[in-house]
């Protein structure tokens, strides 16, 4: 439990899995584009939950990674890309910040966003309604997004998913031990 997501608090400054370096931005670009196209194709109904906010720009900030994620969940102009931390972030209506593993557990449908907000492990600023719509749209997909992403990469993807789950579980237990 922290005042704001603090990557240094539980030794996570080097990312979710310290034994693996974060991927460089140029590798992330095609990867993220593929992921967002797949999720959109599998869940065309999710955009209705976004209502007027489908055209908005969101900034998703995994605070312990060297990049942020820019998302425009517009079915006619999908955009999901990594942006560096140098300079001003791209224009956005709302920013969602948390550790990579906490954001991962939301996408794995293993964690509740309100609970992370209560514990101050998730920070939301900007247009609250846009964020609520995005949260509800992502929570209503048939298959949790983390599963969809893992399936894109076959057996290595599933291994990575399991490794991230173990890392998230370890981080959760450490936090509970630190704040019983």
């Amino acid at each position: 439990m922290t005042s704001q997501p603090d990557p240094h608090a539980t030794g996570r400054a080097r990312g979710p899995m310290p034994f693996l370096p974060p991927p460089p931005l140029f590798l992330l670009k095609p990867l993220l584009a593929r992921i967002v196209r797949k999720v959109a194709a599998q869940n065309p109904g999710m955009f209705a939950r976004l209502g007027p906010h489908a055209h908005e720009h969101f900034l998703i900030d995994p605070v312990d990674m060297p990049f942020m994620l820019h998302l425009r969940p517009d079915p006619d102009a999908l955009d999901f890309r990594a942006v560096g931390r140098r300079g001003a972030p791209p224009p956005h209506v709302a920013r969602i910040s948390g550790t990579f593993l906490n954001l991962f557990t939301l996408m794995d449908a293993e964690q509740d966003g309100d609970a992370l907000f209560f514990s101050r492990d998730l920070i939301v600023t900007g247009d609250t309604e846009a964020v609520v719509c995005l949260r509800n749209a992502l929570d209503d997909v048939d298959e949790p997004i983390a599963h969809t992403v893992a399936a894109l990469f076959g057996p290595p993807g599933r291994l990575a998913l399991e490794a991230l789950r173990r890392a998230a579980d370890t981080a959760r237990r450490r936090t509970e031990e630190a704040h019983p």
């Binding site: 439990m1 005042s3 907000f117 514990s119």
Partner: peptide
């Protein structure tokens, strides 16, 4: 590190840095 919560422009709480929120 505080988190201020507003409803309709009215501040209804301000949580300390290590305080759980509602």
């Amino acid at each position: 590190g505080r988190l201020a919560t507003r409803l309709g422009g009215v501040m209804i709480d301000r949580f300390a840095p290590h305080e759980t929120a509602g």
